[in-house]
Design a protein around this nucleic acid. Structure first.
Length: 272
DNA sequence: ACTGGATCCTGACTGC
DNA sequence: TGCAGTCAGGATCCAG
């Protein structure tokens, strides 16, 4: 479900209400997601207050006084505020109950592709994070970097953009959108991109993600941020999900194809 | 090392 | 209605 803008939006909205709140108890309603949910969540987190909420790639980190949690939302997860009277929904797997039950941070994930694990002493060294590539919204992710990283790479550029070993946070929606913005065909071999096109693509990735962030992310099915509000970037999508609809630039019908078992959307005229 | 494919799981939707 | 098939925002593991 969530790509970088949705995860970042979730972090920001949780920060806005939960920082400083103290854990009353943690309720775990099932023992595993993609990985086992630690059985000492409640024991260890009780009485610790939430110190920081931040993101690495599409992982959310909740830093408490003595422990840090690593959370991933997978395809269908959400982490949002609930009240003691908020009715429980199917697939509400974990509740972090704060301030004597006054507010709850509730983890919901129908497909259970997400995960909740301890981050350990140094989260950057955690096995799930240690191999990750660079953040797209930093200066490091530049045209020069992209040009260097794509040399000799036979992979289609869309798959390259979605490979978290190289650059993180760019999922299926924003990869299609960024390539449209850059005027690059998604099946182009990464190594064939010129320096100039790499420059353009790195900018397009940043602009696409930043625009989505300003809209609070995309809500296609059920994404909601940490306060339970949907995003609106889906209204600004140029190609994603627009098969057979006219390109906003030239009117040519948007096409759909498969890359790595995922749908790709593109304009055959604007993207070469 | 790189690359493509299968896999985990539920729910929404389509077509018969 | 019901049922089967397809597809979905992610990431890991495995074979070639």
């Amino acid at each position: 479900m969530p790509e970088l803008p949705e995860v970042e939006t979730t972090c920001r909205s949780i920060s806005a209400w939960a920082l400083g709140c103290r854990i009353d108890k943690v309720i775990r309603r099932r023992t595993n997601l993609r990985l086992p949910i630690p059985d000492d969540l409640d024991l260890r987190l009780r009485d610790q207050s939430l110190q920081a909420v931040f993101r690495r790639a599409k992982y959310i980190l909740l830093r408490f006084e003595r422990d840090t949690l690593l959370i991933h939302l997978g395809m269908s997860g959400s982490l949002r505020r609930a009240e003691s009277h908020t009715p429980l929904k199917t697939h509400d797997h974990v509740d972090f109950v704060f301030n004597q039950g006054e507010v709850i941070l509730r983890y919901h994930d129908p497909r259970r592709f997400g995960l909740i694990v301890w981050a350990g002493e140094d989260h950057d060294k955690h096995p799930l994070l240690s191999h990750l590539g660079i953040e797209p919204l930093t200066a490091e992710f530049s045209g020069a970097w992209l040009y260097r990283a794509t040399r000799e790479r036979e992979t289609e550029i869309k798959l390259f953009l979605m490979d978290a070993h190289r650059v993180v946070g760019v999922g299926n929606i924003y990869a299609s959108e960024a390539l449209f913005r850059a005027g690059i065909h998604p099946k182009t071999a990464a190594r064939k991109l010129s320096r100039r096109r790499c420059e353009r693509l790195s900018l397009s990735v940043k602009e696409t993600l930043e625009q989505a962030l300003r809209s609070g992310g995309s809500t296609l099915r059920d994404y909601v941020n940490g306060t339970g509000n949907p995003g609106s970037f889906q209204l600004e999508l140029s190609v994603y999900g627009r098969t057979d609809q006219p390109c906003l630039g030239c009117g040519t019908l948007i096409r759909q194809l498969k890359q790595g078992q995922r749908s790709t959307f593109y304009c055959p005229r604007c993207q070469r």
